[in-house]
Amino acid sequence: MVTESDPICALCGRPVPKGVRQSLHHLVPKLKGGKGGPVVLLHQICHNEIHASLTEAELARDYDTPEKLRAHPRLAAFVKWVAKRPPGFHKRSAGGRRKR
């Protein structure tokens, strides 16, 4: 059940109700110097999509804020798609890690 006190996902902007799979995302990956750095709360499905779309190097170099993540074309399309789902929606990400 969604309440007004539920935190908001930093990627999709939907509430993250209690009991829903959630995750903390390091804005700069730990392996790229982000250990102890800022983190944001995400739905697990949103976190999965970020890591399926971008490499650790791309995240550290170009996508170190929620605004930059939402501006990425694949993630923007994902946010538009997931916005139509209920806050508790979760399924495996459609594709695997992108080809390098």
Score class of each variant (00 low, 15 high):
residue 95 G to L: 15
residue 64 D to K: 08
residue 4 E to F: 07
residue 9 C to P: 03
residue 27 L to V: 06
residue 22 Q to F: 09
residue 32 K to I: 01
residue 56 E to Y: 10
residue 1 M to Q: 15
residue 62 D to P: 04
residue 67 E to I: 08
residue 21 R to T: 07
residue 64 D to E: 05
residue 99 K to I: 14
residue 8 I to M: 09
residue 8 I to S: 05
residue 98 R to T: 06
residue 90 H to A: 12
residue 40 V to Q: 00
residue 29 P to D: 07
residue 69 L to R: 03
residue 4 E to P: 13
residue 100 R to S: 13
residue 77 A to I: 15
residue 81 W to Q: 03
residue 85 R to A: 07
residue 26 H to A: 03
residue 7 P to F: 05
residue 52 A to E: 13
residue 48 N to R: 12
residue 59 L to W: 11
residue 55 T to R: 04
residue 71 A to C: 05
residue 26 H to N: 01
residue 49 E to H: 14
residue 57 A to V: 12
residue 74 R to G: 03
residue 67 E to R: 08
residue 13 G to V: 02
residue 35 K to F: 15
residue 45 I to R: 12
residue 71 A to Y: 08
residue 33 G to F: 05
residue 32 K to D: 02
residue 26 H to K: 01
residue 80 K to D: 13
residue 16 V to E: 02
residue 80 K to N: 10
residue 16 V to R: 07
residue 40 V to I: 14
residue 45 I to E: 11
residue 76 A to V: 00
residue 25 H to A: 02
residue 51 H to A: 05
residue 93 S to W: 15
residue 10 A to S: 13
residue 51 H to V: 03
residue 75 L to V: 06
residue 70 R to Y: 01
residue 7 P to V: 01
residue 29 P to N: 10
residue 66 P to M: 02
residue 78 F to A: 03
residue 73 P to S: 04
residue 83 A to K: 14
residue 12 C to L: 09
residue 80 K to W: 09
residue 35 K to D: 12
residue 9 C to E: 01
residue 44 Q to R: 11
residue 77 A to N: 14
residue 20 V to E: 08
residue 8 I to Y: 08
residue 39 V to D: 00
residue 52 A to F: 12
